[in-house]
């Protein structure tokens, strides 16, 4: 569905010198520095997948999305969305994609949301049945009717975001590009947006490419992760598999009676080498490296020694795993064979 090959985007940034004399100098002889925002990246995203496009700030995520949506033209290399190069076939691509840039608006700022939707319906030639079905869906999940007659420019950020999300889905696009789509949404609406995107993915087979800083968005919308660092793909595969690459696991528990927490901590660290124990009141947290111990070993040790009342073995969190992944690649340079 989405094919990216050796995609490069360079920007020319004017170099400025400091101070008055410096700015006079730059006025006369302007020097440019070339910044490579996307550095020869290649990947392939199958139809119907829900992919999170991840990377540290400056990894070129947004720039890549801007090329995939046809907004910007690559410096070299190319990409295909549904078999078309977006920036060369903008109109045909536009029929098939839905776009949200969380920081920007694609609506008519001095018209109401229903008016904007009526225009979009004409522009996209949306069949009546599709239009009505989608409006029903947006009413149900996004409470779009509450925005009724207010001009877009008078909406709050959260209200506008709801309208933007709905606008991106109005014409049943085959691919959704969402760049930071849940900015300004409260928890309830974030949940509704996830439900919405998962529903269109299930029912229409819509391919989703999401960039977000909200890890909860990522784990609940996407099943696949594409991790890019310095323009290179350092991981592509299922998110649950990515999580299982975490170097550290932990077990958190509470117990009744018996020895003091300090004594338990000392015993655990002695009996299970490599673990680190932290105390938080009655609650004890054991961090252990994956290679040396399994969660099972830690648990069976605990079951034998103390009278457990509560026990949590949380899934490693995505943020930590990503941080590990970036550092690993930062230190070793080249990417491991992380592609699945």
């Amino acid at each position: 569905m989405i094919v990216v090959e050796n995609l490069v985007k360079e920007f020319r940034v004017p170099e400025r010198e400091e101070g008055l004399s410096g700015s006079l100098r730059t006025l006369l002889t302007r020097r440019y520095r070339t910044v490579r925002a996307v550095d020869g990246v290649s990947f392939d995203i199958p139809a119907g997948s829900r992919t999170a496009y991840l990377g540290a700030n400056g990894a070129g995520k947004s720039t890549t999305v801007k090329m995939l949506t046809g907004v910007m033209t690559p410096t070299s290399g190319h990409c295909l969305v549904n078999g078309l190069e977006p920036y060369r076939n903008r109109r045909r691509t536009a029929r098939r994609i839905g776009v949200v840039f969380g920081q920007r608006s694609q609506l008519w700022w001095d018209l109401s949301v229903p008016d904007s939707f009526r225009i979009l319906r004409r522009i996209h030639d949306i069949p009546d049945a599709v239009y009505q079905r989608n409006l029903r869906l947006f009413r149900e999940l996004l409470d779009i009717d509450a925005l009724a007659t207010t001009a877009v420019r008078q909406l709050s950020l959260g209200q506008r975001m709801r309208a933007e999300i709905a606008a991106s889905l109005l014409h049943d696009p085959e691919v959704l590009f969402w760049d930071e789509p849940t900015i300004g949404l409260d928890m309830v609406l974030q949940e509704a947006v996830r439900e919405l995107v998962n529903r269109v993915n299930r029912e229409l087979g819509t391919t989703v490419l999401l960039t977000s800083h909200d890890l909860a968005d990522i784990t609940s919308i996407c099943d696949t992760a594409l991790v890019v660092d310095h323009g290179r793909v350092i991981y592509q595969g299922r998110i649950d598999q990515l999580l299982s690459t975490a170097g550290q696991r932990c077990v958190i528990f509470e117990y009744r009676g018996g020895p003091s927490p300090e004594a338990v901590a000392a015993e655990v660290e002695h009996a299970l080498p490599g673990t680190r124990v932290r105390l938080d009141g009655q609650r004890v947290r054991i961090d252990h490296p994956v290679g040396l111990l399994s969660s099972r070993e830690v648990l069976s040790f605990l079951l034998e020694r103390v009278d457990l009342t509560e026990c949590y073995v949380p899934e490693p969190d995505l943020g930590t795993v990503l941080k590990e992944l970036y550092t690993r690649n930062g230190h070793r340079g080249r990417a491991p064979g992380g592609a699945a």
């Binding site: 907004v71 903008r90 536009a94 694609q106 522009i123 996209h124």
Partner: peptide, 21 residues
């Protein structure tokens, strides 16, 4: 202000999209 993108993601001629707004 980075708003121009919206004329490029509509299935109409970008100049038309701009003017018709």
């Amino acid at each position: 202000q980075g708003e121009f993108y919206r004329y490029l993601i509509r299935p109409v001629n970008p100049l038309f999209a701009l003017l018709s707004e």
